[in-house]
Design a protein around this nucleic acid. Structure first.
Lengths: 227, 227
DNA sequence: TTACTAAAGTAAACACCGTTCACTCAGTGA
DNA sequence: TCACTGAGTGAACGGTGTTTACTTTAGTAA
């Protein structure tokens, strides 16, 4: 008899319904609108019901973020179809920059908000699976580049390289999201800075054979602070 | 008669008392404990009183952050006493890394939380004053390095260079704060990565005459992902 | 069919939160 | 003396996450 399987499936569907409602609320009205009461309203249940499916709000949001990070895969899929590891690496970086700058609310929730680790059984199994895990996917691209001898011989730790490139791009994107409105700072355009960061890191990491010319610093707004 | 001056002074003292209480609460118990009611309790006033001094909570927190960013000056002062621009630049970066990794709560509030710009008259005048503004101070160090011919000839925009270095270090620090607990990622040590990022950016930005050997990727935990 | 049980779902409360409003009251200037 | 200004307040409002005791529902076993 498959009743217990059906129960588990229905329970999973209800969890999905809750998360979908929360995601839609977040997309439409921003993070502050994602309250348990409003989520409960959307799915036409009372707020307390959500506690039958998630320990607390933190766990619900964490499950949502975990899903969304996994869903980033779709953003990066086109990059994976490039021919060479180098092209995949470059395309990946550009896709990441565009994603971060174009979806700032989502980016902030996914990568700028400390949340306790979730132990969602549905997504735990997808960890370390390059097909589902964006970081794992990026890591595999970096590993391909290591294997292809793209990087300097002393740079062989793919984790280290991946984390460094990620941090560089994340730095530009997240600083722009958090401080881009700070008028006391004469910000240069964020996207151009992100691309410059990307090229500069590539240039520093690449082996001599693959290093191209020194990355350019777009000049149309240079020198206003030069002596 | 100096009564109006005294009134203004007393008003400023009260503002300071509110901010000090908020800062202590934040330092002792974290951001979530900084509620208007608890701040009011600390200074033994009723919550509504705070609204006589700040438009709302956002403005209060923003004033606190502005003060704390200005106070970062003290952290960076020793770096300013180094002899050469190059030494000042390197020391500044290291001080920033230590500050970010050692005071994660403060870092998160200051640089990872988007807040609307404050128009606090007391601190507005201190903007763009290198003596008070940490970013301005860093910018002036970068400008010294530009003037000293430290960077490649095509890199002359001090704002651009400063924002790139800042973003690189911020990327490592903020990613560690937000995602450092993510067990699905096999993180390399944050401080070593931050120093590596620093050296890698320096190496990429410096003119040939000042470029030293290729920055090392600490090896004690390398190769566990190599093929 | 019926009694039992485990889970789903809920109404109501609790303890907070930021914010507003009507109010008191002391100090000030005319 | 008197009107006025601004600091400070108590009480409320509408909101939040969360818990508790309760009802309802659905599946199981006799």
């Amino acid at each position: 008899m498959g009743t217990s399987e059906r129960r588990a499936r229905e329970r999973e569907e209800m969890r999905a319904r809750i998360l979908d409602a929360a995601r839609e609320l977040f997309a439409l009205e921003g993070y502050d609108s994602v309250t348990l009461r409003r989520v409960a309203d959307c799915i036409e249940y009372c707020p307390a019901t959500i506690y039958k499916y998630f320990k607390d709000k933190e766990e619900m949001v964490r499950a949502l973020v975990t899903q969304d990070i996994a869903a980033l895969m779709d953003t990066f899929r086109p990059s994976m179809e490039k021919q060479t590891p180098l092209e995949r690496l470059r395309s990946f970086g550009q896709a990441y920059i565009d994603m971060g700058l174009n979806q700032q609310n989502h980016y902030r929730l996914m990568f700028m908000t400390p949340l306790l680790p979730a132990d969602d059984p549905v997504y735990a199994e997808k960890r370390n699976d390059p097909q589902m895990d964006s970081y794992g996917l990026f890591l595999s691209v970096v590993q391909e580049c290591v294997d292809a001898g793209l990087f300097r011989p002393q740079y062989r730790d793919a984790e280290w390289i991946a984390q460094t490139i990620w941090a560089g791009l994340h730095g530009v994107v997240s600083l722009h999201i958090a401080m881009g409105d700070e008028s006391a700072i004469d910000w240069r355009p964020a996207k151009a800075r992100a691309l410059f960061m990307h090229d500069l890191l590539m240039h520093g990491l690449f082996a001599d054979a693959y290093r191209t010319e020194v990355p350019a610093m777009p000049s149309q707004m240079v020198c206003q602070n030069a002596a």
